[in-house]
Amino acid sequence: MKLSISYWRLKDRYYRLVGVRCEECKNEFFPPVYVCRRCGSRSLTDKEMPKTGKILTYTELKETLAGFEDQEPMLLGIIQLDNGVRILGQIVDTAAENLSIGDRVKAVFRKIQEHGSSGQIFYGYKFVRT
């Protein structure tokens, strides 16, 4: 699979947290959905998500997926953004012992994956404590 193609398709999602908003009931979703989870409408349009939220749960992963070895140990969290949307992402610029459930975080633009010294670099959102 060519990751570069799906990455290109998704760059607005990864760079600016563009999800969707339901035209009927105004609820927002990220990742985007095809059918509104609240009212069942299929009228959904792109909408940028708020960049701040709080940690609902987190982990320090010691054995990463292939290709992420240089990021071990990796902090991951499920973040509830200020519009109520929940999103998964890495938590960076801190250590596990500093984290607590409920901590405030904000989204930042960072390198996600790098495919070798001459390969493509993939960017996207990560979270830092505020």
Binding site: L3, S6, Y7, L10, R13, Y14, P31, L56, T57, Y58, T59, L61, E63, T64, L65, G67, F68, Q71, M74, L76, G77, I78, I87, L88, G89, Q90, I101, I112, Q113, F122, G124
Partner: peptide, 20 residues
């Protein structure tokens, strides 16, 4: 697109569930 891309493994999801 939204889990694997960010490096989250299957164990890490279950770990976040366990912490919660």
């Amino acid at each position: 697109e939204y889990t694997q891309f960010f490096g989250a493994s299957f164990v890490s999801l279950n770990a976040m569930l366990a912490r919660l």
